[in-house]
């Protein structure tokens, strides 16, 4: 573990933690513009988190320790994931701790704790949200892993830095397997991050919400941490997508400070474009009924399988 690697690790983590709420703010702004509303400021999520931290936490009477610990555990899992996903550099000491498969396991850990906490209060909406979140999760997870498998078959590794190193050095062309995998990954990311068409982050209509229903009982600092963790999750998924499909501009190998500083604006530009694309998808599509989710995610799964088969047959 080199000292430079450790520093780039810390820098990347710090940038992930700061940029994640801004990314959410940017997506919200774009959504507002696209639907002809006046947009909230870019830093609105930060103000929200700050406000929530100042408030007194209200916890339901019969909540157990699980309910109070879950926001911290979810936040920690997402922070660790942010340290592992290469967004600025590929020389990440922590990346050894978990490869792509273990990363999916980390996301699952956060999801399971979220669902358990939602059931802890024992309200109708909480358990409904938990059930639906786990439902979407079990549909999305195989598709996500198939996408990661495709990338790891190309690079002969499941370690994310190695995958990025390999993919960034191929000659620039459109690879059919990656094209299929990219579409599949986009669909999975929409579902996993509770975006339209599977879920609507802006809704508070009880019967249609999935992720929000799990958070109904949270308030103050607990809610702030969970919102921050959700933003980090969106950031992590965006970075995985960028790393797999647009790895150019990332600081490779044992890069020096200059390269990492140079990679930062590239990352911001890529995220801005990606965030706008996300807002565009959300504006152009309508939310699906929950029982249409298997069809949506089944399509994603088939596309990912297709990507893998194309890769096996054509070798590209």
């Amino acid at each position: 573990m080199s000292a430079a690697g450790f520093l780039s690790q810390l820098l990347q983590l710090a940038i992930a933690l700061t940029l994640a709420p801004i990314l959410v703010g940017w997506v919200n702004q774009c959504r507002a513009w696209l639907s002809n509303r006046s947009a909230p400021p870019l830093l609105q999520p930060y103000r929200m988190i700050r406000k929530l931290f100042h408030k007194d936490a209200v916890v339901a009477e019969h909540a157990s320790w699980l309910f109070r610990m879950t926001p911290y555990i979810v936040f920690a899992a997402m922070a660790l994931a942010a340290a592992i996903v290469p967004s600025l550099a590929t020389d990440l000491p922590f990346a050894r701790a978990a490869d792509a498969i273990a990363l999916v396991g980390l996301f699952a850990l956060a999801r399971v704790f979220g669902a358990l906490a939602a059931m802890d209060i024992g309200t109708a909406f909480g358990s409904m949200g938990a059930r639906r979140e786990m439902f979407v999760g079990f549909l999305a997870e195989p598709a996500l892993l198939m996408v990661l498998f495709t990338a790891s078959l190309i690079s002969g590794s499941t370690s994310l830095p190695t995958i990025v190193d390999t993919l960034a050095h191929r000659e620039f062309a459109i690879y059919p397997s990656l094209a299929f995998a990219g579409v599949a990954f986009t669909m999975v990311s929409l579902a996993e991050n509770a975006r339209i068409p599977i879920d609507n982050p802006a809704t508070h209509l009880e019967l249609t919400m999935i992720h929000e229903a799990m958070l109904l009982e949270y308030s103050a600092r607990h809610l702030a941490l969970i919102e921050w963790a959700s933003a980090l999750k969106l950031f992590n998924y965006s970075c995985i997508g960028l790393a797999l499909f647009l790895p150019f501009g990332i600081a490779e190998g044992s890069a020096d400070w200059l390269a990492i500083l140079g990679a930062t604006p590239v990352l911001i530009v890529k995220l801005a474009v990606g965030g706008f694309a996300l807002a565009l998808i959300e504006t152009l599509s309508a939310k699906l009924r929950i029982f249409r989710a298997p069809e949506f995610l089944g399509t994603a799964f088939l596309l990912a399988v297709l990507a893998m088969l194309v890769n096996l047959m054509l070798g590209s």
């Binding site: 610990m69 911290y72 555990i73 936040f75 922590f94 978990a98 273990a102």
Partner: peptide
């Protein structure tokens, strides 16, 4: 090629919490 270190995962999660 591939690596996974449960101890680091646990320590980091506990430390961050």
């Amino acid at each position: 090629r591939s690596s996974y270190s449960p101890l680091i995962v646990l320590v980091v999660i506990v430390a961050v919490v």
